Computed example of a mutant assay.
Amino acid sequence: MKNETTTHKFRNFIVFLLRDSPPVLTLFACIGLTTAASFYQLTSETILQGLLAVNVLIAATLLSERWFVNRENRNMIEKIGDDVTVLGDRISLPTNVGLDSLVGSRKVLPPLEGRLAGSTSLKISGGSLFRLANEYRSLFEELAEQGCSIQLVVCHPDSDAVERLCNEVVYESDDIEAYRHQCRSALRLFEALAEKYDHVEVRTCDIAMSFSILAVEKLAGESSASIELYAYKVPARNRPMLHATKAASPDFHAMAVSQFDSVWSKSMKTEGVCDPNVSIEKVVD
């Protein structure tokens, strides 16, 4: 232990001589040369020799400083490299990440009741949204009763967009009139909810959307966003879907909200769209 202390002191002394003594000696040499020139009659040769000695000391100072700085930088780089190596050993990255791990379907998601519990804001867009209107009517009414703001956008039942969705997206039926009837039925359910609660608003658009959006905001818990892709003639339960939480994928969540807001800005209010006598009947899944 005593030998280690002595060795450490000796090492510090050597470091002082190499790193700190050159600038100190240079300072004293400059002061001494200036003082001597003031009090003594020095020859030009003596002054020149003194200046050369000072320049040598300055050069030694610069070289020693550069050497120590480079040494410290090298040690720091080696330490960072060691830390990165240790961190890399602790992290096991997947070697084969496929799209199947990123894209799911409606079947693999948690129940909608759980995903919407505690919501303060819902933004929902889609073709007809009949399944939501028909199967989750009580859930939406419960959320509205709790003060949740709900914005819904669906295709106008009489628009060309509905015909295109029926021909290119809906798997269960090619009957355009039956699909329009379904759109009116869902829209009437949403309109009834909007008439009851001021913070529920329903709009229609004539955009043949290529996906549906469900963006959820929560004060407590995880906000989330889901985008269901409208693939060609794929059953609704098997349509590819992207789902992520706002905490894990804030950019994805922001993109989903931005897409909804863009459609919302192009949509119109639904007054007088549906006949209140239209029956609520499930025609297409």
Rank of each mutant, 00 (worst) to 15 (best):
residue 144 A to K: 06
residue 148 C to R: 05
residue 149 S to K: 12
residue 152 L to T: 14
residue 152 L to Q: 07
residue 153 V to W: 06
residue 156 H to V: 06
residue 158 D to G: 00
residue 158 D to H: 07
residue 158 D to P: 01
residue 159 S to E: 01
residue 163 E to D: 01
residue 164 R to Y: 13
residue 167 N to F: 14
residue 168 E to L: 12
residue 170 V to N: 03
residue 170 V to M: 10
residue 171 Y to D: 02
residue 173 S to F: 11
residue 178 A to Y: 13
residue 179 Y to N: 05
residue 180 R to Q: 06
residue 183 C to T: 14
residue 184 R to F: 01
residue 185 S to V: 10
residue 186 A to R: 07
residue 187 L to W: 11
residue 190 F to S: 10
residue 193 L to I: 08
residue 195 E to A: 01
residue 199 H to G: 10
residue 201 E to S: 00
residue 204 T to F: 08
residue 206 D to W: 07
residue 206 D to H: 08
residue 208 A to W: 06
residue 209 M to R: 08
residue 212 S to H: 13
residue 212 S to N: 05
residue 215 A to Y: 13
residue 221 G to F: 15
residue 222 E to Y: 15
residue 223 S to M: 00
residue 224 S to A: 09
residue 224 S to G: 04
residue 228 E to Q: 06
residue 229 L to D: 02
residue 231 A to P: 12
residue 231 A to T: 13
residue 236 A to N: 12
residue 237 R to D: 01
residue 237 R to P: 03
residue 239 R to Q: 08
residue 239 R to S: 08
residue 240 P to E: 08
residue 242 L to S: 04
residue 242 L to W: 05
residue 243 H to I: 06
residue 243 H to Q: 08
residue 244 A to Q: 07
residue 244 A to G: 02
residue 244 A to M: 14
residue 249 S to F: 14
residue 251 D to L: 15
residue 252 F to T: 11
residue 253 H to I: 09
residue 255 M to L: 15
residue 257 V to G: 05
residue 257 V to E: 11
residue 261 D to C: 07
residue 261 D to K: 07
residue 263 V to G: 02
residue 265 S to I: 01
residue 266 K to I: 03
residue 268 M to L: 02
residue 269 K to F: 13
